[in-house]
Simulated scan of single mutants.
Amino acid sequence: MRRSLVIFYALLIYAMAELVWWGYMLVHLQPRRFAMIMGEGSMFVLVFAVGAYYMHTSMKKERKLIEQKRNFLLSVTHELKSPLASIKILLQTIQKRDLSKAQILDFIDKSLLDVERLDDMVENMLLAAKIENSSYTFPKAQFNLSALVDSIVNRLQITKCDCNQQIINAEIEPKIEITGDKFALTSVVTNLVENAVKYSKPCTAVEVKLFSKNDRIFLQVADHGIGISDSEKTRIFDKFYRVGSEDTRNTKGTGLGLYIVKEVLDKHQASIRVKDNRPSGSVFEVVFA
């Protein structure tokens, strides 16, 4: 890509130099047609400049997309290796050591949590691919959204406040029914809650609220983490985009979660916005009309 930019700029400079030279020669040979030559030359320069600008913008976007995809592949590789390594160590420990039944059950529970993490990531990638190539139809049916949110919170809930662990506080209004794609909306809720946990400090609570008001359904997920700057609020739903720079970012993720959230909600005629939390963090609010 860098070589392409160098060639592009070299050709641009050459073309402009040739244009100036031929313009000078025409004026020198036919001075009485100076106004016509300058007018046509100016129009050519304008069209050429506009075309060069759009080509430059397109090449920059392509370069950025390639970089994002490279970072995505690196992130996915790390996301896959981490839980797999954990599962391998746990199973090898069970296999090689004489453990009590309680210890074995504890190791199995930890392994299952890593399996669920892998399953969530694979589902995200598959859903993102289907959304991108328009092969997913979003089949809709009525279901209990309260039960869905409650089950996701319970699955992701961490009851002990040890190092690098959070607590999820949930306020869920019961018996809220909605018509939609249960599988896709499960991904929406999971991604929002997991993001809140991921970007929060250890032992910091995450708040999840589900309630209805004025014939609308509200889902709010709030954290007290690093927050999102105003300049990034409009970009966080882009595919592969992640908050911060690639050099300073230290949280896990693939950059697909919020992209999926936005695409799924658009298919359900629902809106999402992100607000600053106080004193720190972010609040994601989903509204189903």
Rank of each mutant, 00 (worst) to 15 (best):
residue 15 A to M: 10
residue 224 H to I: 01
residue 53 Y to E: 04
residue 181 D to K: 10
residue 130 K to T: 07
residue 277 N to F: 00
residue 281 G to L: 02
residue 284 F to R: 08
residue 58 S to M: 13
residue 96 K to E: 06
residue 267 K to D: 02
residue 217 I to Y: 10
residue 200 S to R: 02
residue 95 Q to P: 00
residue 273 R to M: 07
residue 262 K to L: 09
residue 80 L to Y: 13
residue 109 D to A: 14
residue 204 T to F: 02
residue 215 D to Y: 12
residue 107 F to R: 10
residue 11 L to T: 04
residue 30 Q to T: 09
residue 99 L to V: 11
residue 254 T to R: 04
residue 17 A to M: 12
residue 36 M to P: 01
residue 19 L to P: 06
residue 256 L to M: 08
residue 242 R to V: 02
residue 284 F to I: 00
residue 23 G to E: 08
residue 79 E to G: 11
residue 79 E to Y: 12
residue 132 E to T: 13
residue 21 W to G: 07
residue 153 V to D: 10
residue 48 F to H: 09
residue 157 Q to A: 13
residue 181 D to W: 05
residue 173 E to V: 06
residue 20 V to M: 11
residue 264 V to R: 05
residue 83 P to F: 04
residue 267 K to H: 08
residue 96 K to Y: 12
residue 252 K to W: 06
residue 273 R to E: 13
residue 184 A to D: 01
residue 167 I to Q: 08
residue 126 L to C: 06
residue 240 F to D: 02
residue 199 Y to A: 02
residue 57 T to W: 14
residue 187 S to W: 07
residue 108 I to H: 03
residue 207 E to F: 00
residue 190 T to Q: 10
residue 218 F to Q: 04
residue 65 L to K: 10
residue 278 R to Y: 00
residue 91 L to E: 01
residue 10 A to W: 04
residue 58 S to T: 11
residue 95 Q to R: 15
residue 269 Q to T: 06
residue 215 D to A: 13
residue 97 R to K: 13
residue 25 M to I: 07
residue 234 T to W: 09
residue 261 V to C: 07
residue 168 I to N: 08
residue 106 D to Y: 01
residue 256 L to P: 00
residue 198 K to F: 02
residue 69 K to E: 15
residue 212 S to A: 14
residue 12 L to D: 07
residue 84 L to N: 09
residue 85 A to S: 10
residue 146 S to M: 04
residue 246 E to D: 08
residue 202 P to L: 11
residue 35 A to S: 12
residue 233 K to F: 00
residue 136 Y to S: 08
residue 102 A to K: 15
residue 273 R to A: 03
residue 198 K to R: 14
residue 234 T to Y: 10
